[in-house]
Computed example of a mutant assay.
Amino acid sequence: MQVDVDALTVDISGARLVQDVTLRAGSGQFVGLVGPNGSGKSTLLRCVYRALRPTAGMVRLDGEDLLSLSARESARRLAALPQEAVAEFDFTVAEVVAMGRLPHQGAVARTTDEDRRTCRAALEGVGAGHLADRGFLTLSGGEKQRVLIARALAQQPRVLVLDEPTNHLDIAQQLEVLALVRAGGLTVLTALHDLNLAALHCDLIHVIDAGRIVASGAPHDVLTPELLADVFKVRAHRVPHPATGAVQLLFDRLPSP
């Protein structure tokens, strides 16, 4: 499923947080948003998963205006893991993951054997099957994040929107989770803080600064020392990853003027 963001603008309390952003995540692509803190990444993604209505422009799923769909129908097509998603659920892990099945159930939610199989597979897929009977509140931050990713996968969407999905994860978990998401064949639109993770996993990167897209393209073409100095205010040294050849970055401070 293709996601198109068309001329999106967001104004909140008199401040323009996103300015005329247009981008596309093609079917099955893994597309990253990178940019400094406060650049507009999360605001843009909140429009994509319907937590925020844009001031102008629209989001389309395979050509359909997202806001023309019912909440249930959009939830069948698109799942999201917001940055602030670690909430204080007083449920077991299995119950939290089962929430991802709600868009597929009728008015009277009844959990089927298929729902249970889907939830088990999602938990196992993120390496959290052993947590099924644990209380959500007893988990570490990294464990909670994996469970919430499993909940999104249990929703069986065709589009996955992730806002800093590797928060609270150690490096092995970061690599495992992003590889898992990529292997699922979904269309993925994600904000990533770690530029090296973005370079390793993304087909396409959009760099956003002060609410505008300032560069778009393959990681090797976009993550240049000149752009990183301009947008992130750091000096970057590019090296090839020894196994994949993907561009990787070493950073230090810009010299004083």
Rank of each mutant, 00 (worst) to 15 (best):
A7P: 02
I12C: 07
A15Y: 12
V18S: 04
V21K: 01
T22F: 07
S27Q: 12
G32T: 11
T43A: 02
L44A: 01
L44Y: 00
L45V: 11
C47Q: 00
L52T: 06
R53L: 06
R53W: 05
P54A: 01
T55W: 06
G57I: 09
M58S: 15
L61N: 09
L61E: 11
D65S: 08
S70F: 13
A71Y: 14
S74N: 14
R77N: 08
L78A: 07
P82T: 01
P82I: 08
P82K: 04
Q83T: 00
F89Q: 04
D90H: 10
T92A: 12
P103S: 13
P103E: 13
Q105F: 14
T111H: 13
E114L: 09
D115K: 13
T118K: 12
L123T: 03
G135N: 13
T138A: 15
Q145K: 02
R151A: 15
Q155P: 12
H168Q: 01
L169S: 00
L180T: 01
L186Y: 03
H193Y: 12
H193N: 12
N196V: 10
A199V: 06
L200V: 11
C202M: 04
L204H: 13
V207C: 02
V222L: 04
P225Y: 07
L228V: 06
F232V: 05
H237W: 01
P240C: 01
T244E: 04
L249E: 01
F251K: 11
F251N: 06
